[in-house]
Design a protein around this nucleic acid. Structure first.
Lengths: 134, 134
DNA sequence: CCCAATTTGTACGTATGTATA
DNA sequence: TTATACATACGTACAAATTGG
């Protein structure tokens, strides 16, 4: 079976088209949370593109936090985490940004797709907490 | 001049070493906010690595929100934005995550390194807002 | 307004390293 | 140990956007 949903002609690049297609499959549930994606080499064959193009697409999906990749194992759809509710005391300030590599290591934040929230001197991984003003 | 601060031996990969070096130069002010970085090909020569290695390093720095890249022009150190203060009314809920491509286009959020904050039915680019509970 | 140089983006190839199962 | 799969890193070529003359 050949996948012809990507085209070399139009406005959008190949890897963006591939990313959009996989994104749709994730959001539709065809690729369920926690399940494995096909191997990059397999996808390269399916879409009839180079593996590098698949890797660029996967890179975008990682940056969005949609998938998680690690060496030696197929990429998986990120599981929706349980979020702990944090109460913001009156006057508390909050800013969000992407973590540094040091902060990822320090606070066990995944390398890709997960912002951090700074509240006072505390730091929270955005995928494990939500906040409510009180 | 040859840069010998990267090594092919130890634990950390080449592109991570390059990223760490550039990150240090940004944080020290050697690469000031708004200024241009050297071209990727130039850096590849300086560090004596392939351009792909430089691009991987730049990719990490983009994901952290440290630099901004666009076609046809050297990457620049991200300028520290003015943050508008948003007051969180009592009971308001807030979560953070990375934006989808659609949201980037819709809300003029840069493609890389900028999370979004969801408050009620509003969406805020994390680099332009900070929040305070009241 | 157009042209040319510069620079990043995209896409292909190949090979090897390393973690997982 | 072996096979699988992603990660790293080199190469090449061309596309497309920006800048400046």
């Amino acid at each position: 079976m050949v996948n012809i949903m990507v085209s070399r002609r139009p406005g959008s690049s190949l890897y963006e088209q591939v990313a959009a297609d996989i994104r749709t499959k994730i959001n539709s549930g065809e690729y369920a949370p926690g399940s494995r994606l096909p191997a990059e080499n397999y996808l390269a064959g399916q879409y009839d593109v180079g593996r590098d193009t698949i890797r660029d697409a996967m890179g975008d999906l990682r940056k969005e936090g949609l998938i998680v990749s690690r060496r030696g194992y197929p990429s998986t759809v990120r599981k929706l985490p349980e979020r702990e509710l944090v109460k913001l005391p009156k006057g508390a300030h909050l800013v969000a940004r992407m973590p540094t590599p040091d902060e990822c290591h320090e606070h066990n934040v995944p390398f890709d797709g997960v912002p951090v929230l700074l509240v006072g001197d505390r730091i929270y991984a955005a995928d494990r907490y939500e906040f409510v003003a009180e």
